[in-house]
Simulated scan of single mutants.
Amino acid sequence: MSVIDVHSHFVPRGWPDLGTIAGGTGWPRLEVESERDAVIMIGSSEFRRISDECWNADRRLADMAEDGVDVQVVSPTPVFFSYDRPVGQAVKVAKVFNDLALEICAPAPGRLIPFCQVPLQDPDAACAELDRCLAAGHAGVEIGNHVGDRDLDDAGIVTFLQHCADRGVPVFVHPWDMPESPRLGRWMARWLAGMPAETHLSIVALILGGVFDRVPDTLRICFAHGGGSFPFWLGRLDNAWRRRPDVIAGSVLPPSAYMGRFSVDTVVFDERALRLLVDTVGVERVLLGSDYPYPLGERPVGELVRKAGFLDEPARAKLLGGNAREFLARP
Rank of each mutant, 00 (worst) to 15 (best):
G322S: 11
D67I: 08
D52T: 08
Q89L: 06
E46D: 13
R325F: 10
E303A: 15
G156Y: 01
V173Q: 07
Y83D: 08
P109V: 07
G156R: 06
T159R: 15
I221D: 04
M195N: 13
L184Q: 03
A128I: 10
G14L: 12
A155Q: 12
G68K: 11
E66D: 14
F160Q: 00
L102P: 09
G289F: 05
A106D: 06
D153G: 05
R59T: 11
S2I: 04
W15D: 08
S251C: 15
L288F: 02
P182V: 06
A90W: 00
P293L: 12
A205E: 01
R13C: 10
P12V: 10
A273D: 01
G194D: 10
F327S: 05
C54G: 02
F269N: 02
P114L: 13
G194H: 05
Y294P: 01
L277F: 02
A22Q: 07
E284N: 14
W191L: 15
R243K: 13
P78R: 09
D5L: 11
L234D: 01
N239Y: 11
N145I: 07
V11H: 01
P119L: 12
P78M: 12
S2L: 14
E33V: 08
L102H: 05
I207R: 02
S34C: 14
N56V: 10
E35L: 15
L61K: 12
V305M: 02
L184R: 05
D63T: 11
R167D: 09
R330G: 14
S45C: 07
V74W: 02
L192V: 15
R59D: 04
G23L: 06
R85M: 09
V252M: 08
I104Q: 06
P119E: 10
E31P: 00
S45L: 09
E284K: 13
A57P: 14
T159H: 09
D279Q: 15
L277Q: 04
G210Q: 04
N98H: 05
D279M: 12
Y258L: 14
P216S: 15
W187I: 09
A62C: 04
L30K: 04
P114N: 10
E31A: 15
M259N: 07
D99L: 11
V11N: 01
L288T: 02
G322N: 07
Q162W: 03
D84Q: 15
C54L: 14
I207C: 03
M1Y: 04
R183M: 15
Q117T: 09
I50M: 07
Q89K: 11
F310R: 07
W55P: 00
G137E: 04
R85D: 02
